[in-house]
């Protein structure tokens, strides 16, 4: 019971990160590798803010803003200096490693006996349900905000930038600007998620962002396979469903005795298997599992 509750909590807390990756990789069609750095950045900023005596809720807001700025750096490298998308993300991610160490002052910052958003909620609703409820509510707010944003003029221009850059430019949109907005928003969400996870586990660690890209992609691919991408709401829902299932799988394999140090390899292999599945299925002549209305069998973005 406890393990599944934990998986559920984590699925929602990491959900904002998966939505962030969905925004950059899928909506904007930009293989952004800033993630590993911006996730840790969020945790570092929130932890530092809490240690300095700020309200933990402020920590969330500051994490979002700092993550957005990290996304802006990646975006400016690409749009202004014409650095390729992959390299621009890598450069920011590596730079952030030092920035994160500067912020935390050491490789690991503990929040033991500090006031976090989770200690706050436990005062009203004791665990097992308090933490989960807070995680669900926060994710629901983020989900709604992102959905509404993608339905606005700017959000639609952003989606069009990822779909057909030339077309949306011929309709008068400065695609450099929409890319910056998308990268800022995506990394803001990822840092926000990092700040949640940091407060949830009670510490920020310099290595906690490593492999977040792969974990996020694994979640997205699992979700898309099960939920599909026919409509915007379904594509977004697949991010959270994927996140929940991914965290459950991780809990399960740990329960079954997989060493935690082998988790990264396991996650990588999971993504490889998910990417290979449609190809293998086609080659063996099986029909796709998904509905008839679905035209995309292979993932759209093969850049990762």
């Amino acid at each position: 019971m406890n393990i599944w509750l934990g998986a559920l909590e984590q699925g929602f807390l990491f959900g904002a990160m998966v939505l962030g990756i969905y925004l950059t990789f899928r909506v904007l069609n930009y293989p952004d590798l800033t993630i590993d750095g911006s996730f840790t950045l969020g945790a570092a900023v929130a932890a530092k803010a809490i240690l300095m005596g700020y309200d933990p809720w402020w920590g969330l807001a500051m994490a979002f803003i700092c993550g957005a700025m990290a996304g802006l750096v990646t975006g400016l490298l690409h749009t202004q200096l014409k650095v390729t998308p992959l390299l621009s993300g890598i450069l920011t991610m590596i730079g952030l490693y030092s920035v994160n160490l500067r912020i935390m002052g050491q490789a690991n910052v503990s929040l033991l006996r500090r006031e976090t958003i989770f200690t706050g909620i436990k005062g009203f609703i004791p665990d097992p349900w308090g933490t989960l409820l807070l995680a669900v509510l926060l994710f629901a707010a983020v989900f709604l905000a992102v959905y509404l944003f993608l339905c606005t003029e700017l959000g639609m221009a952003l989606r069009a930038t990822g779909d057909n850059e030339q077309m949306i430019r011929s309709l008068g949109v400065n695609t450099d600007y929409t890319k910056l907005v998308g990268l800022a928003l995506g990394n803001g969400l990822i840092a926000f998620s990092g700040s949640l996870v940091g407060q949830y586990q009670g510490f920020a660690d310099i290595g906690m962002g490593i492999g977040m890209i792969v974990a996020g992609l694994a979640s997205i691919i699992i979700g898309e396979t099960l939920v599909g991408t026919q409509t915007l709401i379904r594509a977004m829902a697949s991010a959270i469903i994927g996140s929940l299932i991914y965290r459950s799988i991780i809990s399960l394999v740990l329960q079954l005795g997989l060493s935690p140090t082998d988790l990264k390899l396991f996650t990588s292999l999971m993504v490889v298997a998910a990417l290979a599945l449609p190809l293998v299925r086609n080659r063996l002549g099986f029909s796709p599992l998904r509905g008839a209305g679905d035209v995309k069998v292979t993932p759209r973005n093969q850049n990762f």
């Binding site: 944003f149 339905c151 606005t152 003029e153 700017l154 959000g155 639609m156 221009a157 989606r159 069009a160 779909d163 057909n164 030339q166 077309m167 949306i168 011929s170 309709l171 008068g172 949109v173 759209r300």
Partner: peptide, 30 residues
């Protein structure tokens, strides 16, 4: 034909994008 339209967006979304040609895209409803 694939260059002038956004395949993953709906017919009305494509037209709405075109309707705002040259206008600032704000946080108004799309």
């Amino acid at each position: 034909p694939t260059r002038g339209t956004a395949a993953s967006m709906t017919v009305e979304e494509n037209l709405a994008l075109a309707m705002r040609r040259g206008k600032r895209r704000a946080l108004r409803w799309g």
